[in-house]
């Protein structure tokens, strides 16, 4: 028995050390980014498990594609060809407009980002943390991804990349309680910030002045302020407006355009950077860091 009590007492010092150590780890992880490489290292170790876990869902889609009937495929093909034709027609118009737009902008002497490159990535898993809204993608720094890139699906903005490992990356959705995205109303041009609140079908817009010109159905696009999200991508539409009588503010709830809970293929945007050095230094640092962080890992 003596031995056992000694053992228990012998554990006190290691446990105190580990408690202090984990608290300081959390502090450093919260405030600084020094631990990114540790996180990336562990993430690489568990990435086979992530693939393993996502296998059943993926094989489900393979099987359903394999057994699809001929008729349905023909129908689908016809439908897609039609869509393609319509989209092409629209695109022709778009290109003319784009060219015209650039020409006019050149005339005005204001240069502006024209087109962004995208990388197609697939959803690997959704992080099982009930307090956060994070997803894992199957592309990483080897495919040219880096921290801070915007992620969209075919309907609108989904979120931004927050951690990259060589072959996978973590994306914080715009509905994460820690996320805020600078937006602009298309109709009124009003600029504001939309916060996530943990629900995939809701964004919050807080503290608009009581006289703000908004109504239900207003479309929000990214404003491009802050330099994280490129401008003019659709974000959400206003679904509900609340007047806060006591404080004289308006707050609103918006429904995200992107299908945050069901998109499987997403696009990671590689912002088009001007060769001319007109951008602010802050905007410069984000793309410039990319090759460094890629070589680090």
């Amino acid at each position: 028995m003596q031995n056992i009590f000694q053992q228990a007492r012998g554990n006190v010092i290691p446990v105190l050390f580990l408690i202090v150590f984990s608290i300081s780890l959390m502090y450093v992880d919260q405030r600084f980014s020094h631990l990114e490489s540790v996180r990336a290292g562990i993430s690489v170790l568990i990435s086979p498990l992530r693939y393993l876990v996502s296998l059943p869902a993926q094989s489900g889609t393979w099987i359903s594609e394999w057994f699809r009937t001929h008729n349905r495929l023909v129908d689908e093909n016809r439908q897609l060809t039609n869509d393609q034709r319509i989209l092409n027609a629209r695109l022709q118009k778009m290109e003319v407009l784009l060219a015209e737009n650039t020409r006019l902008r050149n005339l005005l002497g204001s240069s502006r980002k024209v087109a962004d490159e995208v990388i197609v990535a697939e959803l690997l898993s959704v992080d099982q943390n009930p307090y956060r809204q994070l997803i894992e993608l199957n592309k990483g720094s080897l495919d040219g991804l880096y921290d801070g890139q915007a992620v969209i699906d075919d309907y609108g903005v989904m979120g931004q990349v927050i951690h990259v490992t060589p072959n996978s990356s973590t994306v914080m959705l715009i509905s994460d309680p820690e996320h805020a995205i600078p937006v602009q109303f298309i109709r009124s041009g009003l600029r504001t910030v939309a916060f996530g609140n943990g629900n995939t079908d809701e964004l919050e817009i807080r503290f608009l002045s009581a006289t703000a010109n908004i109504k239900i159905g207003d479309e929000l696009v990214t404003s491009g302020l802050g330099g994280r999200f490129p401008a003019d991508y659709p974000v959400a539409a206003i679904a509900e407006i609340t007047h806060d009588k006591t404080h004289g503010f308006i707050s609103a709830r918006a429904r995200p355009k992107a299908r945050l809970d069901s998109s499987r293929e997403v696009l990671v945007i590689k912002p088009y950077t001007e060769p001319v050095l007109e951008a602010k230094p802050e905007e410069e640092t984000a793309p410039a860091q990319a090759p460094e962080s890629a070589s680090e890992q």
Binding site: V15, S22, L25, V38, S43, I46, T170
Partner: peptide
């Protein structure tokens, strides 16, 4: 705990602390 933290995307050390205790 560190592995759980990376898996769940929580702060590094959060589950380590809880599990150590």
């Amino acid at each position: 705990g560190l592995f759980v933290d990376v898996t769940l995307g929580t702060l590094l050390g959060q589950h380590s602390l809880a599990l150590t205790i």
